[in-house]
């Protein structure tokens, strides 16, 4: 059995006194895509944001459980969250480029961590934009505002920005939900192309997207992990009735 890159055990998360996750156990092999599906409010985003400690930004959130990333405790008191978030990158539902140029957006993380060498930056920006499958569309005008791009392009630039700091894990919270079908398709292709080099965890409401993209699917409901299995198995032959109902569109 291969070494797990990330394990989460008995994850309980409270918003104030309200328990939003009731003990989730999930772990991840290196590389490949895991899809998190489930009805609205089932705790997918909540769980995802616990993985790179995004909840730290909010008061009133308590995270319990055991999170190990490459053998290190993510929630250990001496964890450097800055370094952690470079290793576990995140892409959000809404494309959110900074109001700077495309180049500055992608170079941002590197510059912050002290990279000044122009040729290194140039090269990283180019590779990241290529990886995110948006290079051909923007290469002639890297210095124009990222805000002037289409939503789909913005989202791929956001992915490039996350990739530029060379994370090992990429968390994606409904990355195509705000995009038109053509742009979604391009983003999906981007993710497909990255599956051999990154461990990706993607929240999606689209069953077809989950089945196209992911190697493994986890089904959340009301703060519980109902079932997790290979995507094929989940969609063809789920063990749980609830999963069956959800996938066949009977609720949610």
């Amino acid at each position: 059995m291969t070494e797990k890159i990330l394990t989460t055990e008995n994850v309980r998360l409270y918003y104030g006194d309200n328990e939003a996750l009731h003990g989730i156990n999930l772990d991840y092999d290196q590389y490949g895509i895991t899809a998190l599906i489930g009805p609205s409010g089932s705790g997918k985003s909540t769980y995802l944001r616990a993985l790179n400690r995004m909840h730290d930004l909010q008061d009133n959130v308590t995270v319990n459980g055991n999170f190990m990333f490459k053998g290190r405790d993510i929630y250990a008191p001496d964890t450097d969250t800055v370094a952690l978030r470079k290793e576990i990158g995140m892409v959000f539902q809404q494309p959110n480029p900074f109001p700077f140029s495309i180049y500055d957006n992608v170079a941002f993380g590197l510059r912050i961590s002290g990279e000044k060498n122009k040729s290194v930056l140039d090269e990283k920006v180019e590779t990241s934009l290529k990886q995110a499958a948006v290079w051909d569309e923007v290469k002639d005008d890297l210095h124009k505002s990222a805000l002037s791009l289409s939503g789909g392009q913005q989202q791929r630039v956001s992915i490039a920005r996350a990739l530029a700091t060379a994370p090992e894990i990429l968390l994606l919270d409904e990355p195509t939900a705000a995009l038109d079908p053509v742009s979604s398709h391009k983003v999906e292709n981007t993710l497909m192309a990255l599956r051999d080099q990154y461990t990706m965890i993607i929240v999606t409401h689209s069953m077809s997207q989950a089945s196209r993209l992911s190697d493994r699917t986890a089904f959340f409901m009301s703060g519980d992990l109902i079932e997790v299995d290979s995507t094929k198995q989940m969609f063809l032959n789920p063990t749980e009735q609830k999963t069956q109902d959800y996938i066949s569109g009977r609720f949610g």
């Binding site: 790179n52 978030r85 995140m90 959000f92 959110n96 912050i112 956001s158």
Partner: peptide, 18 residues
């Protein structure tokens, strides 16, 4: 400035001050 920008910043590993 939308909160999304703040989240994007911390997701890239920036402290609040940064």
């Amino acid at each position: 400035v939308p909160d999304l920008q703040r989240e994007a910043g911390s997701a890239l590993g920036l402290s609040r001050w940064e």
